[in-house]
Nucleic acid binder design. Structure first.
Lengths: 234, 234
DNA sequence: CCTACCGATCGGTAGG
DNA sequence: CCTACCGATCGGTAGG
């Protein structure tokens, strides 16, 4: 599985503090040694192994479902013994939340970067193509277990967690709306934009159920077909 | 929860025999009493309670997921004690399979009836409207836990079970193809019909994630919007 | 992070 | 279909 780019202190705190980070922050007024902070061997190692747990959890939650994937399986996937994930995460549920958080943070970064690469005067249709193409990458590209877990394990979150993830997905989806509204006003998107967004995300998200990277269609092909379906001629 | 119309001996044998029916068939050459077969009190009761298990299982599998819904919960939902579902079903997994089978058999019957009600010369766009509207009913209408379970618990089936359900879904989906091909040839469906089918089912199936019967949109509204999105002007 | 363990729960069964 | 039970597994913890 491809690695998700790692910016640990950031990724884990994108949303509200949620009690999932077992590493206590340095006391506010604490005296710090001067010079470049040197991580000890143990600290470096800790971040890596923590992330190994997250990656293994994403893979197993996706393959078996949250309830059916045991914390022992996840520990083994990270090369640890049975109870050790609980040194890094206070509960199995908190681990699920971190997987979803990290997946959405990465998806949002990827989408923002794709939009930033576009010329400011790009036509709405090309913006939609870019959004669709990036979304396929997020869903189906290498290392793409995080977002499918988010899509299919929503019911395993508690209310507070749902609220946290909703903020991330809400922001992600909001970036589609100006484009959809422009297409609607230009006459190439017949449905009303709000409902169109729901259907379009459904059409794309569902691809995790049937897409095979060894099948005939590339992500570029799929993007062209989806664009054609939603906006008429491609 | 609305009852699924009950045609027990049919529903359970639509697909290949799968070892899920605990009621042994009458021996082939057995001597039968003449006249209308009278069911005993016990037999009638048995069918009803069996079906109560199936309905409770559908509801709980949907709400909690297959792995997280316990057979004890299901037993309680049917007014039984802990181990009693295993009198009717050899395993929890067999119960899941029956839920999916029954859901798909009902969906197929509903779709067939909707198509049969159409005039033979109905335009392709009206056929698609009918198919979409019926699919929403199947997904979101009263008593609609069975198909969502099928959609979201695929990974909990074993290979033989997947094959069995695939036959049902394959037949269901195949009924959309002539209509999609006609629209494609007529120029009102821009994507290629095979890929369009995958995206369209995704768009519709995803609605189980966001639709609320207490929300503003009716199933008729949604049908109009979906038709507009896929084929241009409604 | 490992070792050893706990209480709870689970799917499933025997015997009636 | 109930009663009483079994072995297995699970999330999580104490103590080092």
């Amino acid at each position: 599985m491809a690695k998700i780019p790692q910016r640990s202190p950031d990724v884990d705190t994108v949303v509200l503090a949620s009690g999932v980070s077992p590493v206590s922050p340095a006391p506010v007024g604490a005296r710090r040694p001067r010079g470049r902070p040197r991580k000890t061997h143990a600290e470096l190692d800790e971040g890596n192994r923590r992330h190994l747990i997250i990656e293994g959890a994403a893979r197993l939650f996706r393959a078996k479902g949250f309830a059916a994937a045991s914390t022992r399986d996840i520990a083994a996937a990270a090369g640890m013994h049975g109870g050790s994930p609980f040194y890094h995460f206070e509960s199995k549920n908190a681990l699920l939340y971190v997987v979803m958080q990290e997946g959405m943070a990465q998806a949002a970064r990827s989408q923002q970067a794709a939009l930033d690469r576009m010329p400011a005067d790009a036509p709405a249709r090309e913006r939609l193509r870019t959004l669709i193409r990036n979304h396929f990458e997020v869903l189906l590209g290498p290392g793409s277990d995080f977002i499918p877990v988010m899509l299919y394990e929503w019911r395993s979150l508690n209310d507070g967690q749902r609220e946290g993830i909703s903020k991330l997905t809400g922001a992600y989806e909001a970036q589609w709306m100006p484009t959809l509204r422009a297409l609607h006003q230009g006459g190439s998107l017949a449905a009303d934009p709000r409902t169109a967004r729901l259907f379009i995300f459904g059409a794309l998200n569902w691809s995790v159920q049937w897409f095979s990277p060894r099948g005939p269609a590339s992500l570029d092909n799929l993007t062209t077909q989806a664009l054609a379906l939603f906006t008429g001629e491609a």
